[in-house]
Simulated assay, not measured.
Amino acid sequence: MLVSIRVAAEELGVRPETLRRWESQGKIEAPERTPGGKRRYDLAKLRHLAPHKAPSERVTILYARVSTNGQRDDLVRQRALLETFSSANGWPYEVIEDVGSGLNYHKRGLKQLIAQICSGRVGRLVLSHKDRLLRFGSELVFSLCEHFGVEVVIINASENSTFEEDLASDVIEIVTVFSARLYGSRSHKNKQVMDRLREVAKEVSP
């Protein structure tokens, strides 16, 4: 049976780019091609890779995050989206929530998520957007998911932001982190500088 790269990846519990990498490394033979150049995989020849597939008895984890307590309403909406999406697909799930910067690698929820992935009990990770996991470094967690056979589902993966949007979001995130640290020094000058940086970042943000 010949299937698309998306279907083949879902069958094995990996991402499409993993299949492309395996092909370039010679781990799997080159698939057939349609007249338009699309890959078509023979599932029968990929069955030996079945251990990478996430078993159905493993749990689906929904991970939601906002940066501050002032964004609690967004956290509620984010969780509702994840739960509705997972319920529509018939996936029993557990929810992990975090409130903290996307630059913070020590958040309790993130640590819990990584521990569960490494324990082998997670079969699927569902996010609303890629940057809800981490602002930088999400690929490291995705690599862990690939290693432990965890399927990653990003609901709004097709909503690609522009370079300017990403840059503005990153600046705001960084300014927020440093503001918290500098405010502690009780320096009025520091506060003025950080407030101005935040204003500028928001001005260029769409």
Rank of each mutant, 00 (worst) to 15 (best):
R132E: 06
D74G: 14
A180G: 13
V171G: 04
L81Q: 05
S4R: 01
P55R: 01
G137V: 04
I117V: 06
N160L: 15
S185H: 02
S101M: 05
R79A: 11
G90H: 04
L134R: 12
V14H: 00
E159I: 09
D42N: 12
V76I: 08
P51C: 00
R181N: 12
I5H: 03
A44N: 12
E151N: 01
R108Y: 09
Q78L: 08
T176Q: 09
S179Y: 10
C118V: 08
A64S: 12
I155L: 04
H129Y: 02
N190P: 10
D195E: 15
W22H: 15
E32V: 13
C145V: 05
E159C: 08
S185R: 07
M1P: 11
P35D: 07
I155F: 02
E165M: 15
A168T: 11
I172W: 04
W22I: 14
A180C: 09
V66K: 11
A201E: 05
A88S: 07
G137N: 03
L125P: 04
H52K: 13
K130R: 04
E173L: 06
R77Q: 05
K53T: 07
L125M: 03
G149L: 08
N156V: 08
S24G: 07
I117E: 00
V126F: 01
K191N: 14
H188T: 15
E159T: 05
E32G: 12
R198H: 14
K107T: 15
V204L: 12
R196S: 15
N89I: 00
S101A: 02
L103P: 06
D73V: 02
Y41L: 03
R6G: 02
L103D: 06
P31E: 09
V200Q: 10
L113M: 10
V141F: 03
I28P: 15
K53C: 13
G26N: 07
Q116S: 10
V126N: 00
V152N: 02
R108H: 14
V99R: 10
S187T: 10
E173W: 04
G120E: 06
E159P: 05
L43E: 00
C145W: 07
D98W: 09
Y183S: 12
L49W: 09
A50W: 08
E164N: 15
G26D: 07
